[in-house]
């Protein structure tokens, strides 16, 4: 089973601490970005309403932002055990058969790691293409935003989630004290 940050029983290894630090840092960026969106949209509304001068391409920017915000914050959410699951049955089984429970836990965290590595790996060519072709949203002559930084955030964010899953797997793989 996953442990919340509070009841983690293993001594904090250097790796754990490093991943924790990086994911907290990225999550902070995502948090500030969210706050920025709030300010941006309010500004857009205000300017449009008062002096009929809306900011350009706000919908495009919001659409672009949301993927970045989510992938910046995923690893930190996983670390805080906030990924949604339905574990009533699993808890029951783990209580009856602790070794089996530990095995599925390692397995499932392994699946999570593999999956998010796959997301990161599959996004590399998407990133390369966006970079090479200068893929953008918005309109030339108005304002354009490049797409590649978002693809890059998906790669970084998904890789970090995968590492976090690996950490969970390694921890759950150890025998109980």
């Amino acid at each position: 089973m996953n442990h919340t940050t509070a009841d983690r029983w293993t001594p904090l290894t250097g790796v754990d601490r490093a991943i924790g630090l990086v994911s907290a840092l990225l999550a902070s960026l995502g948090a500030i970005w969210t706050l920025g969106l709030m300010v941006l949209i309010n500004l857009d509304v205000l300017l449009r309403w008062t002096i009929s001068a809306p900011l350009p391409a706000v919908p495009e920017f919001v659409a672009l932002s949301i993927t970045g915000i989510v992938f910046l914050q995923l690893a930190n959410a996983l670390r805080a055990d906030r990924f949604i699951k339905s574990d009533a049955l699993a808890v029951l089984i783990a209580r009856r058969f602790p070794r089996f429970g530990r095995l599925t836990s390692v397995l499932f965290n392994g699946i999570g790691a593999a999956l998010f590595f796959c997301i990161a790996w599959a996004t590399v060519p998407i990133f390369e293409k966006a970079w090479r072709q200068g893929t953008f949203v918005g309109a030339i002559g108005d304002i354009t935003f490049p797409v590649w930084p978002i693809n890059l955030l998906v790669i970084v964010g998904a890789s970090l989630v995968a590492l976090e899953y690996l950490l969970h797997a390694a921890r759950d793989g150890r025998p109980a004290p």
Binding site: A27, I32, N76, A77, I84
Partner: peptide, 12 residues
Amino acid sequence: LVETGHVTASIC
């Protein structure tokens, strides 16, 4: 802000 991030990430 951090909590908003957790909820947003886990839903999205």
